[in-house]
């Protein structure tokens, strides 16, 4: 008999497409959270696969802190234009200007936490009932507990201790008015799976994932990109470094790594050899042991 067995990447791809189609079928106003980072790029690629030859039947939503890498923003706009996707941008700056949130002060100020308010406001304004996120369970310990279909109450809150059991591949997206769901199609992918898939499918990604020379400085062992967003302390010195980014978030909370990886093949090799998780360079996770869980409960990605 023929060997009817899928490779693990094919099986993961099939599972993710299945999840995305369930979302489109079960919800009236879904959207895809798109940051210009690799995980959301993969989600969009999978969504294209799920609905071809038709267009992706939902918009992209970006919560823009105003402190994003220019390369990621340009990439976001180009991608939306190329595939004719409808892009909605929720602006943290607007939330600050309208007094919805107060900006953090001090050297380690970040707009990361503020994003939650802008996100929940955007969900309310557009009446979204489900949002695709590119979170993976291997990223972080609170995310390891996530469901594919994750329920949020009318305040956008996650209740991790009281989650709906998720059996077989049957997803329960039923909800009351005002509640919504977060849907995570690539839950079961690891960082290595993501890179191998990008390589296999030849998916375009922003240039900051590859090595480049950049003005950086070091604080608490983390390499930061020098920009107007983070004020320098008197002792901190800016120097040119050969770096790339393993994850792409807000400038104020994303650390760079020293790297010469200039191609997808070289990135894959680097990821295979690395001994630190990708979120090891995410300052937002380091605020406390349960930083991610606390933000997620409040409605964060």
């Amino acid at each position: 008999m023929k060997n009817y067995n899928l490779t693990h990447l094919k099986e993961l791809e099939s599972e993710s497409i299945y999840v995305i189609r369930e979302l489109a079928a079960q919800f009236e106003r879904p959207a895809l959270l798109f940051s210009g980072g690799k995980d959301s790029i993969i989600c969009f690629h999978l969504a294209r696969k799920a609905f071809a030859p038709a267009k992706v039947p939902f918009p992209l939503v970006h919560i823009d802190t105003g402190h994003n890498f220019e390369e990621a923003i340009t990439f976001r706009d180009d991608l939306a234009a190329k595939y004719g996707a409808h892009l909605i941008v929720g602006s943290v700056q607007d939330s600050i200007d309208t007094g919805r949130v107060n900006e953090e002060k001090g050297f380690n100020a970040s707009r990361n936490v503020l994003q939650t308010v802008t996100l929940l406001d955007t969900i309310e304004n557009y009446k979204f009932d489900a949002l695709i996120g590119g979170a993976r369970r291997d990223e972080e310990k609170a995310r390891a507990k996530e469901r594919f279909f994750s329920h949020r109450d009318e305040f956008g809150q996650w209740d991790p201790k009281n989650q709906r059991p998720e059996l077989w591949n049957i997803f329960n997206g039923k909800k009351a008015v005002g509640e919504h769901f977060r849907v995570f199609p690539i839950s079961n992918w690891t960082e290595m799976d993501v890179w191998q898939y990008i390589l296999q499918e030849k998916i375009e990604i922003p240039s900051i994932y590859f090595t480049h020379e950049r003005e950086c400085f070091v604080r608490d062992g983390v390499i930061y990109a020098h920009s107007h967003v983070i004020p320098l302390k008197p002792t901190e010195k800016v120097e040119k470094m050969q770096v790339r980014f393993r994850t792409v978030g807000d400038i104020s909370c994303t650390g760079a790594v020293l790297s010469k990886a200039n191609s997808l093949e070289e990135i894959v090799e680097e990821v295979a050899a690395t001994r630190v998780t990708e979120r090891g360079s995410r300052i937002d996770d380091k605020r406390s042991e349960a930083a991610m869980e606390d933000r997620k409960k409040a409605g964060y990605f």
Partner: peptide, 18 residues
Amino acid sequence: GLRAEREQGITIDVAYRY
């Protein structure tokens, strides 16, 4: 992974590992 789990030293929910 959850705060309550670490506090009580028990596992409450299914966790996925890779």
